[in-house]
Simulated assay, not measured.
Amino acid sequence: MRQLIIRSSEPNAMFSQLQSCLKGELKEAWGERVFTFDNELGKGTIRTLPFSWGISLLDFDITLTDETKIIFDTQELSPIEFIFISKGFLKYNDNPIVDYTNFEKFQNIIISPARNAQKTFLFPKNENLKVNFIQIIRDEYLKKENNNISYLNDLLVSLFNDTNGDVGYQHRGSFSLRIADEIKQLNNVHDSGILRTLSLEGRLYLILSLQLLEHHNFEEKMNIPEAISKEEITRIHKLTEYILEHISENISINILSSESGLSPKKLQVGFKILYSKTVNEYIRQLKLEISRDYLKNTDLSVSEIVYAIGIKSRSYFSKIFFEAYEILPTEYRKQLKNKNVST
């Protein structure tokens, strides 16, 4: 395991130390600082962009060759950080005597360690990680006229007003495709100059507002269709077992909704978050994978396989099999037999 020590919580200083540790090549334009690295430590890009009133963006798109611990060894007060992972996962700890916390893909996360806590991130080995940090330096933001902090819930109001860092805070909220979509748009801005800066700043504030809204809804226990909780994610995981056990049947989204107790819309959101597929796309892919296994490891005819995976039409099965694997089921089995004969 590698270990990188960062001795500042100030965004620009922290970025410079990360660049030094990872040996990256720095480019600067329109207020953005981006460094790219491709060496024995890994490869990827890290970007920072500061805005007014203590708000800044820090994002990573990196793959490291070894599990890497990044430790913030500083007495400075850490900014409040709004974190969102678009790909991969991350582990976090601010107390060496307790286990790491898992930060998951598409989960809304807010952290603010106490001043003397040792903030530590554990980056995975050989895993492409895409993660955004929106950082807010409290005492600078509080100087902003019409900062409207008082309109937040009591928990966040106390967090923003804790300029001494007396109390640590961590929020692991719901999973949100809406925030994921906005992050994707943020990373696809291709303008230059003032248009780029304004576009990035506008999208950053929109993402921040969505993360604050999710926190509010989470604390108020509000059921929002486009967000999904950890408990609902667990139910969807269990639902995949049900699908596998009933693969020979006609499985509709209404049946799955009844089985899980989740609305059809929640199911679609959950499957998109977990598997990047709609419910029907997931079921179809599973049926095709099982059919391929039958073709390879059994003597069942194609018609028997079609029946076993719950597809009514052999011609439809052949069509979707070809779309997925660019070969017809009968040709796939022939290819396997010829390969076995030649060996």
Score class of each variant (00 low, 15 high):
Lys87His: 05
Ile85Pro: 02
Arg284Val: 06
His171Trp: 02
Asp162Tyr: 05
Glu326Tyr: 04
Gly88Arg: 08
Phe317Cys: 09
Glu182Val: 09
Ser20Ile: 10
Asp166Gln: 08
Ile134Met: 10
Met1Leu: 12
Glu145Asn: 11
Met14Cys: 06
Phe175Cys: 02
Phe317Ser: 09
Arg33Thr: 05
His190Asp: 07
Leu57Ser: 14
Asn95Phe: 11
Leu142Asp: 05
His190Asn: 04
Ser252Val: 08
Ser257Thr: 02
Ser9Asp: 08
Leu239Arg: 09
Glu28Val: 12
Ala117Ser: 13
Phe321Val: 05
Leu57Asn: 14
Leu49Ile: 13
Pro96Val: 11
Arg292Glu: 13
Asn250Gln: 15
Asn217His: 11
Val131Trp: 01
Ser276Asn: 13
Gln107Ser: 11
Tyr282Trp: 12
Leu90Gln: 04
His171Arg: 00
Ser263Gln: 08
Ile83Asn: 00
Lys69Ser: 13
Asp191His: 06
Ile83Cys: 02
Ile137His: 06
Asp139Phe: 04
Glu10Gly: 00
Ile309Pro: 07
Arg138Asp: 03
Asp94Gln: 10
Gly88Gln: 06
Phe271Val: 09
Ser112Thr: 03
Gly165Ile: 09
Gly54Ala: 13
Arg196Asn: 07
His237Ala: 03
Ile179Ser: 03
Tyr307Arg: 15
Ser248Trp: 04
Leu274Met: 10
Phe72His: 11
Leu152His: 05
Ala13Asp: 14
His215Leu: 14
Leu267Ser: 04
Lys266Cys: 09
Lys339Phe: 14
Leu239Met: 12
Ser56Lys: 06
Gln75Val: 00
Gly88Phe: 01
Arg138Gly: 01
Glu127Ala: 04
Pro11Asp: 10
Ile194Cys: 00
Leu57Thr: 14
Phe35Val: 02
Leu156Asp: 10
Leu210Asp: 01
Ser20Asp: 12
Phe321Gly: 01
Tyr332Thr: 04
Tyr205Asp: 03
Ile247Leu: 15
